[in-house]
Design a protein around this nucleic acid. Structure first.
Length: 271
DNA sequence: ATCGCCTCCTGCGCGC
DNA sequence: TGCGCGCAGGAGGCGA
């Protein structure tokens, strides 16, 4: 599934195709995503002009004058620009027909994604109003992690993946940034020092920044807005490398479950 | 408040 | 080939 770099790559790639375009129709074939797509969605959008495509965490915010829709790609979702003669694929759940004869097309095999109306003040929507800072902005600090984690017994990996702590750090980049910072993913969040949180914050920013620059990690379902794969996967140091040698110290990469999710780390480099 | 677990769903790779 | 199983990028919601 898309993590933040994939969502940001999608946003950036689609933006130029969408801004200023008028929406001729919205065709919904399957409304049962994580939550039902509201019945009124076509009437909100038809005839309106797209004014912005923004991002908050892994949510895309598609705006028209009258309000904003939230789009989430879940584990397997993707958005792309299609031409009129492009064949419909399995799991293409909705299309927006634009005024230049192209479509914005949403595909999501697992249907964990979302397409919801959030009105004129989307940031006060229930799904957005408690989110932590954006990882690439200055509000994401070691001080914040340190303060919020005191007394907490939760594994630092889960703490880092909690969207109230910081948005956009998913399962791949949590393992990658903890590896780079030399922190064991199972260490209690409350027992990580300020100094080590400083290193973690730097590495989260580095790994997400680098991934966005190279167009995200392509695993199975992800394609960016123009339909081409990302290249960050080749740069992953621990994720999916169980049993292979740590690139820093040559000891074998370990895989454990933390909170039902696979977690990858080097037992020698990470403490 | 905090934490861990469950859930939604399809597709794929593996072992037999 | 076919079948059953486990696993997959998220994250809200719930019960303890």
């Amino acid at each position: 599934m898309p993590e933040l770099p994939e969502v940001e790559t999608t946003r950036a790639g689609l933006s130029e195709h969408l801004l200023g375009r008028s929406i001729e129709s919205l065709n919904i074939r399957q409304r049962s995503l994580r939550w039902p797509i509201p019945e009124e969605m076509p009437q909100y959008f038809e005839g309106q002009v797209i004014s912005e495509l923004a991002r908050r965490g892994k949510y895309l915010l598609l705006s028209i004058k009258q309000g904003t829709a939230l789009i989430h790609l879940g584990m397997s979702g993707s958005l792309r620009i299609c031409q009129k003669d492009d064949e419909l694929r399995k799991h293409d759940h909705w299309d927006m027909l634009l005024d230049n004869n192209t479509f914005l097309r949403y595909q999501d095999p697992r249907r964990f994604g979302a397409f919801l109306w959030a009105g004129m003040d989307p940031h006060s929507h229930k799904l957005l109003n408690r989110l932590g800072p954006e990882p690439l902005q200055d509000e994401f600090t070691a001080q914040r992690l340190y303060q919020r984690s005191r007394g907490r017994t939760q594994a630092v990996k889960n703490f880092l993946m909690d969207s109230n702590t910081v948005v956009g750090v998913g399962n791949i980049y949590a393992s990658e940034s903890l590896h780079r910072a030399g922190i064991h993913p199972n260490r209690a969040a409350g027992k990580v020092s300020l100094t080590r949180y400083q290193e973690l914050v730097s590495q989260v920013k580095n790994v997400l920044g680098e991934a966005i620059e190279s167009g995200g990690s392509t695993l199975r379902d992800y394609v960016n807005g123009s339909g081409s794969p990302g290249y960050f996967q080749q740069k992953l140091l621990v994720y999916g490398r169980t049993g292979e040698k740590c690139l820093a110290c040559s000891s074998p990469i370990k895989q454990i479950k933390i909170g039902q999710r696979s977690s990858f780390y080097c037992a020698r480099c990470q403490r």
